[in-house]
């Protein structure tokens, strides 16, 4: 089983609660903005702690009563909605932050010509692909993708979609992806969970 999630969290006046278990492949959290989808990803990555519940990925307990692994020990490859590249590091240093810079491993992303660039000079699609590469090079045990296609034009969306499919089918990493786009959810998800 790849994801075994049961989390509850109150943020402000909003109660976020989600329980699901999924097998291999890509699980898509699908729903409107404000439903707490990103908060669920943050809980799984260890950036915020649930009020109660458990988080298990690939059989390992990341959070449960008495267990709360810090983010750096969870092995999440987290691609944030806003790329979140480190602005003071060039693309090469961003890619190599979490693990050795192995360009062969991420050749399918088509970013090898960007290595000397500063993040601020990248287009949205380039930044997104670098962020995916950075997450993959940290040798993650699973991937968390937060609206990886938002604010990209059609051509860029197709590039990033193909990259995600490659990760899903060739690298066989468990993926949990958040989206509010039904077509994206259909295309990527082996399982879709409405939120």
């Amino acid at each position: 089983m790849s994801f075994d999630i049961d989390v509850r969290k109150r943020i402000g006046d909003t109660d976020i609660a989600l329980t699901f278990a999924s097998e291999e492949g890509a699980t898509v959290l699908f729903g409107p903005s404000g439903a707490g989808k990103t908060s669920v990803l943050n809980m799984i990555a260890g950036l915020i702690a649930p009020d109660a519940g458990h988080i298990r990925v690939g059989g390992e307990t990341l959070f449960d009563a008495g267990v709360n692994l810090p983010p750096e020990r969870r092995g999440a490859g987290y691609v944030f909605q806003d790329a979140r590249l480190f602005p003071h590091l060039r693309v090469a240093a961003n890619l190599g932050y979490g693990g050795p810079l192995d360009l062969d491993a991420i050749a399918f992303l088509g970013i090898d010509h960007l290595l000397d660039r500063w993040p601020r000079t990248l287009s949205g699609g380039e930044a997104r692909r670098v962020a995916i590469g950075r997450a993959l090079l940290s040798r993650p045990r699973f991937l968390l993708l937060d609206e990886p296609l938002s604010s990209l034009d059609r051509a860029r969306r197709e590039e990033v979609l193909r990259a995600i499919e490659h990760v899903r089918d060739t690298l066989a990493l468990p993926i949990l992806m958040v989206t509010h786009d039904a077509a994206e959810a259909e295309r990527i998800g082996t399982r879709i969970i409405a939120m």
Binding site: A45, G46, L47, G77, F80, F86, Y97, G98
Partner: peptide, 25 residues
Amino acid sequence: RRLEGAARTLGAGRWRCFRTITLPL
């Protein structure tokens, strides 16, 4: 702070995160 969160998910402990992200920025 979101950059620090990103660094942590990439495997950086608190000290490395401080040294490589917070301090230089």
